[in-house]
Design a protein around this nucleic acid. Structure first.
Lengths: 66, 66
DNA sequence: ACAAAATGTAAAAAACACTTGTCAATATGT
DNA sequence: ACATATTGACAAGTGTTTTTTACATTTTGT
């Protein structure tokens, strides 16, 4: 599961910590997400999409094996 | 967290079991989802949106407390 | 009325998101 | 060069949550 969170976050001029605060998670969670260590819950995905002004489908891409 | 899975599933003329097979989960998972017993993983949400021809944002709606 | 298909529900297992803490590395600005 | 802000990475744990297995009920068609 690939994601483009980092790209859109930077485009918004936000630090990981700032984004984390906006969606109520720890900074490490954002960091791990950008490193594709795991896939966020649907709730978090929706919040991220909302803050970043994108559709979830823009942020995440299904891969072989998902 | 509300969802419209049932509505779109029926519009597609699919049974719970058929939809379940398409997205590789048990039939009961679909049933529980439609009963809003829980929110599916992002992976499953993406697959459902794909099969139903909708955006995740069309299927799920954030509520107070999510 | 009967069989088959579809749906509902509950308990339990299995999987996973997320936190906290910590340290190292890289970038940014003065 | 120095200090500060930002990011990367990792371990360990916890608690939550998704998902399955199994059984019961309802619906549909003939």
């Amino acid at each position: 599961m690939k994601n483009n969170i980092k790209i859109f976050r930077v485009m918004k001029g936000l630090s990981q910590e700032q984004l984390a605060k906006e969606v109520n998670v720890s900074r490490q969670t954002i960091n791990a997400l950008e490193a594709a260590k795991y896939v966020p819950s649907t709730v978090l995905a929706l919040k991220l999409a909302q803050i970043l002004g994108k559709q979830i489908e823009d942020l995440f891409e299904l891969e072989e094996g998902d």
